[in-house]
Amino acid sequence: MSLSAPPRLLEVKDLSVHFKVYSGVLKVLDGVTFSVDAGEKVGLVGETGCGKTTTMKAILRILPIPPAVVPRGEILFQGEDLLRMRPDQMRQVRGPGISMVFQDPTASLNPVFTIGEQLGPVIRYSAPENRGLSRRQIRQKALIPLQDVALADPERLLDAYPIQLSGGMRQRVCIGMALATNPELLIADEPGTSLDVTIQDQVIRLLGELVERKRTSVILITHSLGVVREMTDRVYVMYAGNMVEVAPTRRLFANPLHPYTRGLMEAVPKLTGGGMAMGIPGRLPSYQHPPSGCRFHTRCPHVMPVCRREKPPFFQAEAGHQAACFLYSPEAERHRNEAQA
């Protein structure tokens, strides 16, 4: 028990989320464990459908229940388990504690309310001292987050409807709204994915500058390894509802360990060298009947008999670099021999 360890801002332990659907139970998250330290910028990568957004929605407790159920797990935020909180306590965590920027800015803004009508309540309920403010005062305060995200003429923007804004402006408004609560932790779910590349780049840079200035901790979900490399301190790799590897960002790029991570890196087309980018053969497994043992074994080039039997825990390869793969187990040699026998 070391009291001197830096406080964990967020610690998710063994989180499982299932969806009960007509045809059965989808075991989407299967014991997800990860953490974010105060002031840290953490990346989360993995292919579409691997459970990144579900994990984040589970943390904020905004998954629709039913059909979602959380059979086990803990989500400690500043030491308190969010899963055990009463709804009113949880509401106070959302916003000033944790806030989120969703993938699609167009879908994230309510089409029938002006920006001001949507931003107003965010500000009013983000701090107790804002509760009693007049509409005018709230409006005055609402200008600041819009200025923060470098939007011109914020005064007029407050009276505009989302349909009157461009995609880039909508994304900026979403980021401004999420940061207007001054959150301890910002979850950014593929910001800018729906925008064209130059605008996306601007938006990501802006986000980076803002969280740097406000010293906000960040979980950045993205497909773009380039963005991860540029923006994050540490990266988690997720596959089919499991964390499969975690490392400091530079270490991960220098020395990816998990076969899935390696495949992911090779899937990126390179500007030099020519030839087609390598993909990972196969598809994400079914969540209704997930593969036994390691969920990646159906696609893994290094599969061993043990991978089909047991779910691999995290094995430490070096300080802070862990992979959930039996190749890195102390008994790797024995596992490999078993395959040949």
């Binding site: 106070q92 806030s99 994230s108 309310f113 979403c174």
Partner: peptide, 27 residues
């Protein structure tokens, strides 16, 4: 109810009665 704007409003700490009575009801 399953739209992102409702998830967004909730994720930003807006009380449920405002999310339901305003942001969900009007559209």
């Amino acid at each position: 109810l399953s739209k992102d704007y409702i998830a967004t409003a909730r994720s930003l700490g807006i009380p449920e009665r405002i999310v339901m009575g305003r942001f969900l009801l009007k559209p």
